[in-house]
Amino acid sequence: MKKNVGGIDKVLRILVGVVLLLLTFTGTIGLWGWIGVVPLVTGLMGYCPLYPLLGLNTCPLKNK
């Protein structure tokens, strides 16, 4: 799997994911906060399955 998430995109995904999960655990936003797992996992893995469909790549490294 080629990495296609990098830089600021990666950091923002991880932060948004963590914040949403923390808000869920504290009961602030309810079950909808579990959606935070998606940006957290994609940020940690460095791969977003939607990006190839949209022709996007924010990773500065060349993929071989």
Rank of each mutant, 00 (worst) to 15 (best):
V41Q: 03
W32L: 10
V37C: 04
I29E: 11
P52R: 02
W34H: 08
L20G: 01
P52S: 01
V38S: 02
V38N: 04
I35E: 12
L56N: 12
L21Y: 12
P52W: 03
G7F: 01
L15T: 06
K62W: 03
L31H: 13
C59D: 15
L15M: 13
R13P: 00
P39V: 03
L44W: 14
P49A: 07
T24S: 13
W34N: 00
V19M: 13
R13D: 00
T28N: 11
P52Q: 02
G46W: 11
N57G: 03
G36D: 02
L50Y: 08
C59R: 07
L22F: 12
P39A: 00
L54E: 15
L12N: 00
K64D: 14
V41K: 05
N4F: 03
L22D: 08
N57D: 11
K10A: 04
L61P: 08
G30E: 10
P39F: 07
L22N: 11
L53W: 13
G33L: 05
P39T: 07
G46M: 13
L22Y: 13
V11R: 11
L21K: 06
Y51E: 10
L53E: 11
G55W: 00
V5N: 11
Y47W: 04
V19C: 10
G6D: 07
L54A: 07
I14A: 02
Y51K: 10
G7R: 00
G55Y: 02
T26C: 02
W34T: 08
P52E: 00
N57M: 03
L20S: 10
T28Y: 08
T42N: 13
L50V: 12
L61A: 06
V18K: 09
T24G: 05
G33H: 13
V38Q: 06
T24L: 02
L53V: 14
V18P: 15
K10P: 12
K2E: 15
G17P: 14
L56P: 01
G6Q: 09
C48E: 10
L40Q: 05
G36P: 14
L50N: 06
N4H: 07
T28P: 10
F25R: 01
V41D: 09
L54V: 05
P39D: 03
V5E: 11
F25G: 13
V16R: 11
G36R: 06
G36S: 06
M1R: 09
P60Y: 12
G27W: 06
L23N: 14
N57C: 04
L40V: 04
I8F: 10
C48H: 12
P52H: 04
C59F: 04
N57H: 03
G33W: 15
G7D: 05
K10M: 08
P52C: 01
G17S: 08
L40H: 12
L20P: 11
V41W: 12
I29F: 13
V18F: 04
G17D: 07
G46E: 06
T24D: 07
G46D: 04
G55F: 00
V19P: 08
G30N: 08
V5D: 11
L50G: 03
Y47V: 05
V37M: 07
G7T: 01
T42G: 05
K10N: 05
G43M: 08
L56S: 04
G33M: 08
G17C: 03
L23H: 07
P60I: 04
L40C: 01
